[in-house]
Design a protein around this nucleic acid. Structure first.
Lengths: 142, 142
DNA sequence: CATATGTCGATGCATTGGCATCTATATATG
DNA sequence: CATATATAGATGCCAATGCATCGACATATG
């Protein structure tokens, strides 16, 4: 089997279109409020969830779906911006531990209302919770 | 209203994750088969659908969801690769007409089986047509 | 222990993308 | 018609990304 049916194509097209439009809406809102891109939020959130021990870069990259070099550079920028702390890893001489700083926490907290507002307007207002849940379920099967 | 419910958040997360993973799968397949990125396919398809008169760049940009400067540069590369032809626009001295070349048509045709295979494996095999249609419908409401 | 192989993270190089701005032409307005 | 404003498309500058590869350390294998 290889030919795709019309519904598959429609789902793909809608998936690409809407994800791009929504992502751009989020990015635009964050930027115009003076905040960093969404990728920074994702990284900050994962680091905050990981607790005070933080994460190794290779662990983080799997959670934020960024390539190894992309994660390396993102962390550089975030260190420079003072949002995360980098320290040498004791158990593994090659590695390092990344943890969120207080400033990082506060930036993440400040970004959330902006982010949430877009999601609320663009998704919450358009789909009842049941439909949103159904959407999530269908997507999770991909 | 501004607080988002759990289902909205789950839908958003799944939307971001799956769209990125699927897109990357498509891009990887195309690249490893020696073809250009998906954006080129999209542009070629729109130009082919537009017929022999082709499209003005500003028309194309709306259909492929690219910023003006992105479209300008994409077209540069595609002209250089010989996939599209650019000619001055008669009705508007500022503008130009872009049309797909024979080579462009054949490249698009050759890309499709690669593209389709990924969609088939990643979507068609996972969702019955009815579910895919349901997914498309839910997404279309966003 | 010595060597081969694997994993972690960084980086040089080239390509792509974002932003602001420019030129040229078109259209509107007095 | 003269001037102001708007639109089409290109581009300089800088930042971000992709790719390949590197150096450092870790682990497996003889």
């Amino acid at each position: 089997m290889n030919e795709i049916d019309h519904a598959t194509e429609a789902a793909w097209t809608a998936l690409m279109t809407k994800s791009r439009v929504l992502l751009e809406a989020v990015e635009t809102s964050l930027k115009s409020a003076g905040y960093p891109p969404l990728a920074w939020y994702d990284a900050l959130l994962e680091l905050e969830k990981a607790g005070p021990d933080g994460l190794r870069p290779f662990e983080l990259k799997d959670r934020i779906l960024l390539p190894q070099y992309g994660t390396s550079r993102l962390l550089n920028r975030m260190v420079k911006a003072g949002l995360v702390d980098r320290q040498d890893c004791l158990e593994d001489g090659r590695g390092q531990n990344i943890s969120i700083s207080e400033k990082g926490k506060s930036v993440r907290r400040a970004m959330w209302p902006i982010y949430e507002r877009v999601l609320s307007e663009r998704i919450g207002a358009k789909l009842k919770p049941k439909d949103a849940a159904q959407l999530a379920t269908l997507l999770s099967r991909l």
